[in-house]
Design a binder for these strands. Structure first.
Lengths: 248, 248
DNA sequence: GTAGAAGTTGACGCGACGTCAATGTCAAGC
DNA sequence: GCTTGACATTGACGTCGCGTCAACTTCTAC
């Protein structure tokens, strides 16, 4: 009778977490099950699996869960891409720090095995880089050192609302023009594309191709398509065409 | 009047931690200040700086603080080397995991920028490796997956005490023989070396050269030399010579 | 019908500090 | 000498991401 869904234990095994973690994510509203049997048991679908993987990637980067929530909840791909990029950079830095640390530890081990005493200077080597880091950490708090996150946080709740509102405004204006079968090259539509580009640029400065790709994604990816088409059918497509004209 | 000592803020800046962290380490007995002014202010010397760096290296490896305490408190280099090696391996694994994760994130970003939708399979790629990992984590608890740590923990408090007592026994017996100017090649001394080797091997299986190096270090490194010579002068040297004969 | 395995919801525990409050002490300037 | 401001001290409670009971329900298998 189970219509191909994962129960909590199956998902836990698949993703490499404990069931307790999944219940916790449900409790804090980070990941709710697709449906719950009338016996109370949680069942998850493919979408939840995908979302969980997204969550786990971010968690691996030491992103706090509430920040993760705001990231995976945003349906703006530009913002997501920008945040992902920041985390990507943070991740590379962390990897490099671990690498130099590993070297230091390795040297320490061989010194021990060869019976050489450890000196202060060589034990600090891996840390030289981290000396100037703490101030930044104390100012912004660990991994919020990420640029985009900081920018987003700096907006404050009000600013964040305004940003999202601007997006809504653009989308609904576009939807009205789409309903009227407007020409993507028309000045009204192009004005909206300009606003859209400015809006995107707050966090991300896409080059021509990337912006084109973003337009394509608005149509191809159902998640993002829905974001625009909820204002009216054909909105995503109009935006894509308009972006194509805009990027010329 | 300050005889070249760091106050808490200076040490914090130097090491890249907060003063609260230092106070915490003092509270749990992990790192006490070199001296406290009669006004109650903490002052740290070079030795504390060194110890703090040692602590921070281990902390970077997600070693719990109480384990760190037992590591930095132990004056047995073989045990230290063994533990360090385990952490080194853990560190490399972590670095590699981060590397594959970075690749996955990078691919995800380019897919977004090119407007390709994200599919389940490619988002999981970085995680394939981690699929079989969770069971181990659930069994042993995250980074306690380290072999030596697990072995040490498995001994329990009593076992740990016995281990340390055995070391004391060996050292004091050696000291008595050293005082009597015993021959390193004599059967009494060699029997003690055998015990010492067995003792070391509980956590670490050194090859011939490593064990030789260990002997050398007992003499060369003042910290470890003191560990043996506190039972009587010449103990460390006798042990080194005896190891040389033993490894023959 | 009964056992056993696995799910559920509280609720508390923990590790490594952050953070706040109340207070004390120092160096500098008036 | 007195104030002022910066920084120190010791409690004590808060936080985050779960782990870990406890008490109970429910499904499956025999």
């Amino acid at each position: 009778m189970s219509t191909e869904g994962l129960d909590i234990a199956a998902l836990a095994r698949l993703a490499g977490v404990t069931s307790r973690t999944l219940r916790h994510y449900d409790a804090i509203g980070l990941l709710s099950p697709a449906w719950t049997g009338r016996d109370g048991r949680r069942h998850y679908g493919d979408a939840e699996l995908l979302r969980l993987q997204h969550i786990l990637v971010l968690r691996e980067l030491n992103v706090p869960l509430d920040t993760i929530a705001s990231i995976v909840d945003t349906d703006d791909p530009a913002l997501v891409a920008s945040l992902m990029h920041e985390h990507y950079v943070a991740l590379l830095e962390r990897r490099d720090r671990l690498a130099t640390l590993a070297e230091t530890v390795e040297r320490t081990i061989t010194r021990i095995e060869k019976g050489l005493p450890m000196t202060a200077d060589h034990m600090f080597e891996g840390f030289d880089h981290s000396r100037y880091e703490p101030e930044a950490r104390e100012r912004w708090g660990d991994d919020a050192v990420d640029g985009s996150n900081a920018a987003w946080a700096a907006l404050g709740a009000a600013g964040q609302g305004a940003h999202l509102a601007e997006h809504e405004a653009i989308a609904s204006a576009l939807a009205r023009l789409a309903a009227a079968d407007a020409d993507p090259a028309s000045p009204e539509v192009q004005a909206l594309v300009a606003r859209h580009h400015a809006w995107v640029s707050l966090f991300w400065t896409p080059d021509r191709d990337a912006y084109l790709g973003l337009g394509a994604m608005y149509v191809e990816d159902p998640r993002f398509r829905a974001t625009y088409d909820k204002h009216g059918d054909g909105t995503a497509e109009l935006l894509r065409e308009a972006i194509a004209v805009f990027t010329g």
